[in-house]
Design a protein around this nucleic acid. Structure first.
Lengths: 212, 212
DNA sequence: TTCTGTCCCATACAGTCTGTATGTTGTAGG
DNA sequence: CCTACAACATACAGACTGTATGGGACAGAA
């Protein structure tokens, strides 16, 4: 990584940032539409109106560029969710954690409808980066948010106390799969309804007091 | 596809089948250990002691070979589970559907621990084949079994009636993610225990009578 | 038997793509 | 002014995939 940009903003520094940003944008669009393997570096740089030299100056290799793109997608998703949640929490003025969790799941599901996010983060990510690198990125941006909400709900006694780490990952996988199911359904409307129902039902099933 | 082998078994036909099988075995091992992109066709054919000509005679391209390998993995998994379930159902002599479902989930989880299955079917499959082709394979071998058990449980009133297709896929994703979580945990023993607990708890949560 | 067509596979070739090495330009600093 | 380095552009080498071509074995027809 080419270090931090200088604290003072020169026009040259702006150009550098612009080049890097153009590469990220072009790569994101192409990776999301054609997939990682089917996207050549030449396609990316021509869309960004630079040459391959610029790409390999800013990124170690193609996979490194993909990692940067995926991080951007994951980060945006996390920020979108946080902003959405805090706004609703404020609007509904101290609504109880349980309701926030339930509605939060539904809005998480809707947010996952983003095709870029689905293709880049959910589909290609694990295969391109390998689970360790992929997990590190998701851990940073995605799981922390969900895990915090779940731990709070557990602390307040709204859901049964369960091991948080596996619970977080499994619920996350649940929502991811639901979003993919909706995306590839012919009747999106109906699929969204059904998946939402199942998801909510499973969450409700975790409420305190249910034992085998 | 080179049609069906002749009904009479000639020695030549055996050789053809052997060549094809050797390619499948070699590809499976390499795809599972190094991944699809990192495995060259030359690696595969040298491990199978043939040439690339044989590969491109039996399979349209590299992705077609991968699809055949993945189908084999999925098929084996399905057969393993079916055999396991029917044996247990017979042994426990008409045990009730609910218990069969719960124990079945746990054994499904254990079966998913197979590294070949994880890497080829769960990780690389969706990225290499695309969701339509991937889904077609899983639909055929995987979902039918799970969906049947779930529909029976629903019919008997053991679980709340929910849309079967999304429920099947989401539960399947749940188990898949759980198996991956276990596989990449340092303490496998503990992870297996925790994931099993969460999984069982979520299934129990689906029992009839719970509403939001 | 001989000849021919087809299946099965090996070899040779061309095109594409990735990563690196090298060259060039602009700019900051002494 | 001159040097050194950042930010690219260009040129090159290696690897890999898919296809075209060739050959050997076998089966059937003449």
């Amino acid at each position: 990584m080419p270090a931090q940009p200088k604290s003072v903003s020169s026009r040259r520094a702006d150009h550098v940032a612009d080049t890097r940003g153009a590469l990220l944008d072009a790569a994101r669009t192409l990776f999301a539409s054609r997939g990682y393997a089917a996207t050549g570096t030449e396609d990316i740089v021509s869309a960004a109106r630079v040459t391959r030299g610029a790409l390999y100056h800013h990124f170690r290799d193609k996979a490194d560029l993909f990692a940067a793109v995926m991080e951007q997608c994951a980060k945006e998703m996390a920020e979108r969710l946080i902003e959405q949640e805090t706004r609703r929490a404020a609007a509904e003025h101290q609504e109880d954690t349980w309701s926030l969790l339930r509605t939060g799941f539904q809005s998480f599901l809707d947010a996952c409808a983003d095709p870029d996010f689905q293709r880049i983060v959910l589909i290609e990510g694990p295969a391109v980066l390998g689970h360790s690198a992929w997990d590190a990125l998701v851990e940073q941006h995605g799981y922390v948010l969900l895990e915090e909400v779940l731990s709070q709900a557990a602390a307040e006694g709204r859901i049964d106390p369960l091991p948080l780490r596996p619970l977080t990952r499994m619920l996350s996988a649940l929502i991811s799969e639901a979003s993919l199911y909706i995306a590839r359904s012919r009747d999106q409307e109906r699929a969204r309804e059904e998946a939402g129902t199942v998801l909510d039902r499973m969450l409700v099933g975790l409420r305190r007091g249910e034992d085998g």
